[in-house]
Design a binder for these strands. Structure first.
Lengths: 216, 216, 216, 216
DNA sequence: GATGAATGAGCCTTCATTCAT
DNA sequence: GATGAATGAAGGCTCATTCAT
């Protein structure tokens, strides 16, 4: 679509390396979501991408590498998303916290396919060091920033609660809600998901968050 | 290992149907935890149990059924655990809530192997409706009871918060902490996990829970 | 049933060796007929006989031997049938020929199950010399007697046709009609089958057989 | 062997889809003939074709489909053979009958391997609807045409015999002779087989066939 | 005699990977 | 770059056979 650019021709035979790789990674995410990790085959990925079987190996060498790069892509996309949200947020810690929480439910990130793809890696990540890199990397920086914000908020309110635990409650609430969205047969909406996280934030920081989210 | 234990007798060659089935289900949990869902093979399950692979099919017919029964076993074990904890708890809603939260970190239930097995099922859940049966049924009852307790506590405190959302925050916090225990390279202790959940409970119900858990 | 004999008790635990073997051979014939040679398993034979799996090996040692004895049983049953018919026939060659042809359509011999069992052996026969022993021996005697009768009839009629070919036409007509009864979806009746063979006999020996069979 | 033939070139590594499929069907016929239905394995078929066993599934998906297509191929080959013979025959019914009978012993069709392959399907066809299609289709048209020819001959001779029975005698004689060629240890020659069928035809239609076959 | 748990060889099938075209 | 035929390792499953009870 986008890359058809100046010429109106359909389906160019030769596309740039990066374009093809992106295409295949998206197809991998789609396939993971629809069939789960165990039944994701290169043939299926290729079919989803509308490409030939052999091309996958041509661009990624092995299945292992395709999956690892897909995970790395998801992790980077996730990081870029909350980083950008934070950069755009006001300077007050409460505003920054709100930005991070909202970022996790950004419609561009929080799609059924992406949630399911994340989920399909969970079951395998524990036993595969290769995946743990991207996986852990996703969280470590996020945790550090979130703890900083919580510590600032607690300081503002002159409270002595453990910022590490408070930050953890917020983070696992987000993750748990994600898990709900993935695993429930008829999950609730993204708005309800965000409202649930705001309920948690309001309980932890009643001076800054209310039932409707950030107090202004 | 295990059977070498107290008695020096050799393992019996033939055991009753139920004994063997239980043995194989435990071996399946172990294998799922160590290798993940996708790399769990019947041969590996059999090796873990110290039995021949033909026996697995003899007792469970197909791999699909073995996994389904393993999940059903885990779900029932989980349900029995919190049900028993609830039955032993004092009658006050806060005591009942505390009992349910503590039950989820009962050392008999909250073992690395069981956590990892749960996780490996979650990863495939969305593509296998079969597993949603055991899993979904389990959760629905748990959710219903938890919501009842939260509603009672909110009523006691004359608060108008939505009990469904409050209960959900508690439940997903537990699940999120479980995910941490599973997926982190160097996870925190079970005690720290429980303390985190208590931090959440204290935020939601400050009249009944404090930093140390249930107020007495 | 029949072997319950003097006592009216149901299903005696211990039966004579020969009774059990007969029971299993009948179950083998039944199974061959219903599932074909390739899908005939010991488990299925045992289930058809209403006996336990292990008993088959106890009485026959191997599957190979069970099948070989089943074939030998069928061959002997077949031989006894036409031999008895011949013994009861009048002395004239035409009467003897008619007796042999009719014997092949004796309702006790020419049952769907037995026809199908024969057929399933034929399909494997060429690769299993074991079965050619029982089968070949059966046929050779039959062929020799049939040729004798044909030679006598040709001599009576002062004809110089080759008795070997004439006998062969009669024999393969019977076999071909048997094949029809087995392989057709809606086969004709046993009476029509016999009438077809009589049509052949009438063509070969018009002085002795007519449209209705043996002339009297 | 075969491909070493005239040209000294090595066998090509990659061939068109249809070429490989034909090659594998021939190998299946060969294997069925040598080992029988029950012991025909994909590994053996592949070895006979000089290919890897994975290729069989690549081209036919399942063993079941390979066997079904092999049977369909044989049925079509059979039909094409007698159809062509009939088209080349003179217009007189006796000539047409002779052409059909001779066609069944055409060296291209009536090879040991093909006879044995047919035979190996017989035992299974009765219990497998999948095979009955090709199987029944083979015969139905043949029977209809043969009956028409017999009816014409009987009309020519002003005889009132039942054309259905007469045609059936001829057909089952051919089939019975085929069965002899397959199942006997030292079968007679194809010429003797044809002579036997001619003996039958001479008995049924003495005005048109003699000991040597069609009267001219 | 009889039962059914246990074993392991061999089969069909899937699928990542290679490679000629 | 791209395609799809070809390979072979590995997994699930069947089943004849053995054997403790």
């Amino acid at each position: 679509m986008a890359e058809a650019g100046a010429k109106a021709e359909a389906a160019p035979r030769k596309l740039s390396r990066e374009t093809r790789r992106g295409q295949l990674i998206e197809a991998t995410i789609e396939t993971l979501a629809q069939r789960g990790y165990a039944r994701t085959t290169l043939t299926e990925v290729a079919r989803t991408a509308g490409l030939s079987h052999g091309l996958v190996n041509f661009h990624f060498e092995t299945k292992e590498k395709l999956l690892a790069e897909t995970l790395a892509f998801l992790a980077e996309e996730y990081r870029a998303n909350w980083t950008a949200a934070l950069a755009a947020a006001a300077d007050h810690p409460a505003a920054r916290l709100d930005a991070m929480l909202r970022a996790d439910f950004n419609p561009a990130i929080c799609t059924p396919a992406r949630l399911a793809a994340w989920c399909s890696f969970w079951g395998e990540a524990q036993s595969r060091p290769l995946y743990q890199e991207s996986y852990g990397a996703k969280d470590e920086e996020y945790i550090r920033v979130l703890e900083g914000i919580c510590a600032a908020l607690l300081a503002l309110d002159r409270r002595s609660d453990d910022p590490e635990r408070v930050a953890r409650v917020l983070r696992v609430t987000v993750e748990g809600v994600w898990l709900d969205l993935m695993s429930m047969r008829n999950p609730y909406s993204r708005e309800e998901a965000l409202a649930t996280v705001h309920t948690c934030a309001a309980a932890l920081f009643p001076a800054h968050f209310g039932a409707g989210g950030l107090r202004r």
